[in-house]
């Protein structure tokens, strides 16, 4: 894995909020085809980290490279273009409530000139079919359950044909019975070879799909490893403590 090219690479990331250090020198590389799961207690900086990776947060020090090219925090336009290649799914789905499901999905690819309206329409319907929402193209987000909305949000990101997908606690806001349907879609993506970085608390899912799990605490990466080794024999006491709490 490690010899593959890094799609996203972060070096020495520092992010401060009002004097507090949310990220304190984080290095992270995500290689093509790799699935990295990021875990950690709340407030550890994991959401901040993933939001930095597509430039939604500015950083105070360090650097982020997308496809080997460094993009500075202030380069808004460069970041905007980079984001067209980085899909992101949020905890709170964030579909546009005034658009139908179809329009939610086709807006960005059409505006970016990626797809013609007809192509976008076809792509959206195909992707919806794939996540089991074939009949919902003309529904409004408010008419869908949380799990369905989150699946639409994933499709919306996929419609841009991204090179990498970032997930920020995609199942944390969902009722338990809906978590599975979202994880199933993510499993599909993983077997299709999608490059992903996932912040989640679903350790079972992490063990199953992750190539690498990263444990972050108080803004630092404390431990990183393959799922088996990571979960079976955690080295650092802080990770041991964390795992004991959540497993």
């Amino acid at each position: 894995m490690s010899d593959a090219r890094a799609v996203v690479s972060a070096r020495g990331l520092v992010k401060r909020y009002k004097g507090m250090c949310a990220l304190d020198g984080v290095d992270l590389e995500i290689h093509a085809g790799e699935i990295v799961v990021i875990v950690g207690p709340s407030g550890s900086g994991k959401s901040t980290l993933i939001r930095c990776l597509n430039g939604l947060e500015t950083i105070d020090a360090g650097s982020i490279r997308i496809d080997g090219r460094e993009i500075p925090s202030q380069a808004r336009e460069e970041w905007r273009l980079a984001r067209q290649r980085i899909g992101m799914v949020f905890q709170d789905y964030s579909l546009f409530p005034h658009f139908t499901v179809l329009r939610n999905i086709t807006l960005a690819p059409i505006r970016a000139g990626r797809l013609s309206p007809e192509e976008a329409d076809k792509t959206a319907r195909r992707l919806l079919e794939r996540v089991g929402l074939g009949g919902y193209a003309n529904a409004y987000p408010a008419e869908l359950s949380g799990g369905q909305q989150q699946r639409v949000a994933i499709v919306r990101a996929l419609a841009m044909a991204p090179e990498v997908m970032l997930f920020d606690e995609p199942t944390s806001a969902l009722d338990p019975e809906m978590i599975r349907e979202v994880l199933d879609v993510m499993r599909q993506l993983s077997s299709a070879g999608m490059t992903m970085a996932i912040v989640t608390h679903e350790m079972g899912f992490a063990r199953e799909v992750a190539d690498r799990i990263v444990f972050i605490d108080r803004g630092r990466i404390v431990e990183t490893g393959a799922p088996e080794q990571f979960l079976r024999s955690p080295r650092s006491p802080r990770l041991q403590e964390f795992l004991a709490k959540i497993l």
């Binding site: 959401s47 409004y140 949380g146």
Partner: peptide
Amino acid sequence: RRGRDVRRGPAPLLPASRTVESV
């Protein structure tokens, strides 16, 4: 035409974890 149940839609959660995290 546009919003339908926009106001009554499932409230997008701004969960505690996010608030904590951004501090």
